[in-house]
Write a protein that binds this DNA or RNA. Structure first.
Lengths: 150, 150
DNA sequence: TATTGTTATACTCTATAACTATA
DNA sequence: TATAGTTATAGAGTATAACAATA
């Protein structure tokens, strides 16, 4: 009878995880990696961050860059390059605001169309992500996530 | 009485979030950003990814690089640079395996000591992250996260 | 032939500091 | 003085492709 190994399990056994499975940050990171991969594999042309920006512009036409940056949790300088790209792809338009330091942001017709085409793909992606959960488990997870680090 | 605006809310109102709050990936990303910031602010010298690597080596002494890379969900080429750094800091040691293509990985005394010193900081970080949740809500969240994307 | 570790390279996402134009 | 947008720059973290050593 083989004695119990003190070091690494054999090549096909899973690794011992130590305390990692009990850490929220670790579980969150693994889940997010898997979700991002599924997103990238199933949604062409737009990253998760870009979808967030387009959705917020659609829901808040004329929003300024600084407010949008705060809403998505990135620095305003980081948003500049992202908007350059979205404007170069003719998905978003910047218009000088009445406070002439600001730019208001609007979706172009092409941007709105791309977003509309993408939403069903996101819905299917979301179904795959939550495939193992019941509807009530899924809402419970959403609610719990919203209460982290108050 | 002010009529309801059709475009962006005023400068201090929160943005309308559209469908974003209902997307698991979006909520996960926001939660993880906040958690990473708290981690970086409260745990010196080690990033979340490095802690994961050190914990897995501690729990699986002699593990090979390829198996460790699979366990933490990164490419084995990505792990090489991380291990170069940890070895240069004298936290980890590589030893040629009996299968001479492989390196077995061990914590050095210094690596084990750093990890031991860091664990209480991680525990306090974890308490802050879950401060808004009861113990049973926290375990429920961990369990639900483990069931995403099969 | 297949696998392990490695290198070279590049890409994405992010922030900080300093600039300009406006307020 | 303060804020909005911008630029230059840098730093994480990551992957792909190709290679030598070994199985």
């Amino acid at each position: 009878m083989p004695r119990k190994s003190v070091s690494a399990p054999a090549g096909d056994a899973p690794l011992r995880q130590g305390l990692l499975p009990g850490l929220l940050g670790y579980r969150l990171r693994l889940a997010q990696q898997a979700i991002f991969r599924d997103f990238a594999d199933s949604i062409p042309d737009l990253s998760p961050g870009r979808v967030g920006v387009l959705v917020l512009i659609e829901s808040n036409p004329g929003v300024t860059q600084s407010r949008l940056a705060r809403a998505v949790g990135i620095d305003r300088s980081t948003l500049v390059g992202l908007l350059h790209e979205l404007e170069a792809r003719n998905l978003v338009q910047r218009r000088r605001g009445t406070d002439r330091r600001t730019n208001g942001l609007w979706l172009t017709a092409k941007g709105a169309a791309l977003l509309a085409r993408t939403l069903p793909l996101i819905a299917r992606h979301e179904e795959r992500v939550a495939a193992g959960l019941s509807a009530s488990e899924r809402s419970r997870l959403l609610a719990l996530l919203g209460r982290l680090l108050g």
